[in-house]
Amino acid sequence: MNRHLNILVIESDETRARTVADALAQDGTCRVVILADTSSLSRRIAEMDPDVVLIDVADPSRDVIEDMAVATSPKERAVALFAPGGDTEFMRAAIEAGVSAYVAEDIRPEVLRPVIDLAIAQFGTVRRLRLELETTRRALEERKLIDRAKGILMRARGLSEDEAYALLRKTAMDQKKKMAEVAGALVTAAGLLG
C-alpha cells in the first residue's frame, strides 16, 4: 500500500499552479498544496514538511530551499535536487520545461519518477502556451506598428501601400534590422517632427 505523496507547488501564477496541481492530484496518490507567497519560505516548508517541492526553475527563492537542504546535515540530505543521480538529460528536460523539484530523502525513486515526469510535462505545456501567447501578442503589435509606418510613408511621399511596404522592407534589409524596428523608428521620428 503506497502512502500519499505530499507535494508542495510553489507558484504565484494561479492558472499555472492549478494546472499542475490538478494533473498531479488526478491519480489519487498525491496530495497537492499550492503556495503562492514565497516570504518566510523556509519556515513554511518546514511546517508543511512535504515529500516533494515543485518550483519554477527560474524562481529566485530556490536558493532559500537549497539552504534547507544543507542547513542540518549537508552530506545526508543532499538528495534535494531534481536530477536523481546527476542525470543531465533529465535535467535538461526539466530546465526546458521550467520546473525544479526538491525531494525528501526517504522517497523511493520509482514512486517519484512518474510524479516528476508529469510535473515536467505540465510545467512544459503551461510554459509553451505562455510563450505562444507572447509571440502572438508581439506579432500583433509589430503588425500595428508597420501599418502606421506604411501610412506615414504613403502620406509623406505619396506612395501606394505596396510601395510603402517594399520601401520599409528594403530599408530593414539594408540596415540589417527587423522591419518592426525600422517602422518603430519612423513612427517615433514622425511623432517628433509633428
Partner: peptide, 9 residues
C-alpha cells in the same frame, strides 16, 4: 540566472 541554484543547474 536569478538564483545560484539555477546557475548551478
Amino acid at each position: 540566472a536569478r538564483s545560484w541554484a539555477l546557475l548551478r543547474d
